[in-house]
Computed example of a mutant assay.
Amino acid sequence: MERIEHRAASGGWQDVYRNASQVLGCEMNVAVYLPPQAATQKLPVLYWLSGLTCNEQNFITKAGAQRYAAEHGVILVAPDTSPRGDDVADAEGYDLGKGAGFYLNATEQPWAAHYRMYDYVVDELPALIDAHFPTTGARSISGHSMGGHGALVIALKNPRRYKSVSAFSPIVAPTRVPWGQKAFTAYLGEDRASWAAWDASELVATATERLPLLVDQGGGDEFLDNQLQPQWLQAACTAAGHPLTLRLQPGYDHSYYFISSFIGEHIAHHAKALYA
């Protein structure tokens, strides 16, 4: 891993690394925040997955998360949201292609060659982080919007891998909303039966671990009614008896102003589980 950024932050270091991903077949950037405790001891890791149009920079520059990670002794890892490079397939619009990997493994061409963000986040990236940084091996996961979808799906599909999971404004039912339907048709094909494996509101019914879900949703979110629809996840969790804390925060929109207002509570939530 080649370090390409190195900045002091909240007593620790906010770095960005570049690595050649075998899974994605391209070079990837990943942001790593090492709190001050990392200089003398091994620490747990919180993985953050960002949303549409984002890369590794959005979370580290806008969320204000470093101060809370330093307070609780948690390493923050924020990868890019899709494969990158001249050979990587792309599409017009912000909601498909580069910047819109949806944290799944594509099966359709031309996407299947590179768009395997699920395997990257679940397997390849944690192996790199654990090999290069002072980690305890304990991990949690969180994310925003498309990344909230990714965090919920990844946690539900990998029982006992994560100590906790949370999401801001997640796409909880991608099979039922335009963002998800467009991406899933392109990446996974027309067979909608295969889509359920990447939909959190479908996965809770068969989850073998009842890992509590923490979801914050802004009441003034411009995408609430047409793209996010948290009621689908709430109904699924009620039917399955799956623990869910869904908090509707009045007035907040879809932006990082919302995330920065509550990221401290989320990191405290994850730290409690990571150190339990």
Rank of each mutant, 00 (worst) to 15 (best):
D199N: 06
G99T: 02
L203F: 11
Y275G: 02
K42W: 03
A70R: 08
L152R: 00
G251R: 12
V215F: 13
D123L: 13
T238K: 07
A197N: 08
A70H: 05
A138L: 11
V177D: 01
H270N: 05
L52N: 04
E92D: 14
Y68N: 02
Q14T: 05
N226M: 08
V30I: 07
W48Y: 15
E190M: 07
L52R: 05
D119P: 06
A186D: 07
L34H: 05
L49Y: 01
L274W: 01
S194M: 10
L188N: 09
D95P: 01
L213T: 04
F133T: 04
D95M: 14
T175L: 08
A127D: 15
G25Q: 13
H72T: 06
Y17D: 04
T40Y: 07
A91Q: 10
W13K: 04
T238Y: 13
A70N: 07
D119K: 07
N29C: 12
S169L: 09
S255F: 10
S169G: 13
A239P: 04
S260R: 14
A89P: 03
E209A: 12
P230T: 07
G93Y: 13
D80N: 08
A173E: 08
K272N: 15
K157F: 13
L46H: 07
A8K: 13
I141V: 15
Y162G: 00
D130K: 13
P110I: 04
K98F: 04
Q181A: 04
T53R: 01
V165M: 05
C54S: 12
E56F: 06
A65G: 03
Q231L: 11
Y257Q: 12
Q229H: 09
D253K: 05
P250Q: 10
T53S: 10
L24F: 13
V122W: 00
R176A: 15
F102Y: 11
I75S: 00
A200F: 15
A113R: 14
A131M: 11
R3S: 09
A9Y: 01
C237Q: 02
D253N: 15
T107Q: 14
K182G: 09
K62P: 01
M146R: 12
G148W: 06
V177G: 03
L244F: 14
P159Y: 08
G218W: 01
Q231F: 15
D90M: 06
H72P: 05
G93M: 14
C54T: 11
E124D: 07
S21N: 13
Q234V: 04
D119S: 15
G189L: 12
D253Q: 11
C54D: 11
A240D: 04
L244S: 10
A100I: 00
C237E: 04
E108N: 07
R84H: 11
I60H: 00
L152V: 01
A167T: 00
Y94N: 06
L34V: 09
P174F: 01
I154S: 02
A268I: 08
Y252W: 10
S145M: 06
L214Q: 11
P243Q: 02
H242D: 03
L274Q: 02
N55F: 02
Q14F: 07
A197G: 09
E222R: 09
R3E: 10
H270S: 06
T185D: 06
V77E: 08
F168M: 07
F258N: 03
A207V: 09
I4E: 05
N158H: 12
D216M: 06
G73D: 10
Y275S: 02
Y47E: 07
